[in-house]
Design a protein around this nucleic acid. Structure first.
Length: 267
DNA sequence: ATGACGGATCTAATCCGA
């Protein structure tokens, strides 16, 4: 049995529950990690997910903004929430799963967007983003015998071909050198493998987000790869396939992000 | 100008996204 893990910034889970049901019907992930659920824990559509077999749920929401949730068909051993930057907002939840003889922690992140101006001295949102990413350096892909998977909307497009124009985005928040270097430190120091880039070579353009503001998102195709799936090397060795579901950006009432799905041959 | 839309909220105009 493979393990299929999907990450998706859903931009309001209540507004888009039908859209989530379409993903489930067509792709049937075992573990679904959502960001920007934009609701409190009480408002989360727990019964709708349970109906489709996601009986195991780790919801960390807040009113109106942010919020993450991981729902799973497999039992969740334990749940942790880390309050990055001690801001009291809901941007991380992790779950422990036991799959194919491996103990796997799945981290689900919603990294701050960072506002408009890429200057931490004048823009507190950008300062928050840099501090958040710095704090993520403590994460490890492996600790003892345990492995980890890290997914989410990291709000940073690290490589040149993760954006439509490397040159034109170097001063745009999400692709500035201070951000991409910061995320690269998290990646290198944690011992992670980028599953999407293991599957799709770095010389190929790949995006997971397209602005709502474009007249025709597909024709202009000015996207960015903000949503990521990383894992420990041992988990990465079992990677069977990766899907960046571009077509979901064209569904009715879409999120501005699309699902990123990794399938692992773990047992 | 890359491009002005889309979500939530004390339903109107404002904050936020990136």
């Amino acid at each position: 049995m493979p393990l299929k893990i999907a990450t998706w910034n859903i931009n309001s889970v209540r507004l888009r529950i039908k859209t989530v049901e379409r993903l489930i019907a067509e792709h049937d992930p075992d573990v679904l990690c959502l960001q920007e659920i934009k609701c409190t824990n009480d408002q989360f559509p727990a019964k709708a997910f349970a109906k489709y077999g996601y009986e195991h749920q780790a919801v960390h929401g807040q009113k109106a903004y942010h919020g993450v949730a991981t729902v799973s068909k497999r039992p969740i051993r334990d749940i942790y929430r880390h309050d990055y930057c001690q801001m009291g907002d809901s941007r991380h939840v992790s779950v422990g799963l036991d799959v194919g003889g491996m103990a796997i922690t799945v981290h689900n992140f919603y990294v701050p967007s960072g506002g408009d101006e890429p200057d931490p001295a004048t823009n507190p949102k950008f300062d928050h983003k840099l501090k958040f990413v710095k704090e993520m350096r403590a994460l490890r892909a492996n600790s003892g015998d345990d492995d980890a998977v890290l997914v989410g909307d990291l709000n940073i497009a690290p490589h040149e071909n993760d954006v439509w124009s490397h040159k034109q985005l170097l001063k745009i928040v999400s692709h500035t050198p201070v951000e991409t270097e910061g995320l690269t430190r998290v990646f290198d120091e944690g011992g992670w493998v980028d599953l999407v880039r293991r599957h799709i070579p770095v010389d190929q353009k790949v995006y997971s987000w397209w602005s709502y503001r474009a007249r025709d998102w597909s024709a202009s195709d000015r996207g960015r790869r903000l949503d990521h799936v990383w894992s420990s090397p041992r988990v990465a060795d079992q990677l069977a396939s990766v899907t960046v579901l571009r077509e979901a950006r064209g569904w009715d009432k879409p999120s501005d992000h699309v699902p990123v799905i990794a399938t692992l041959d773990l047992d």
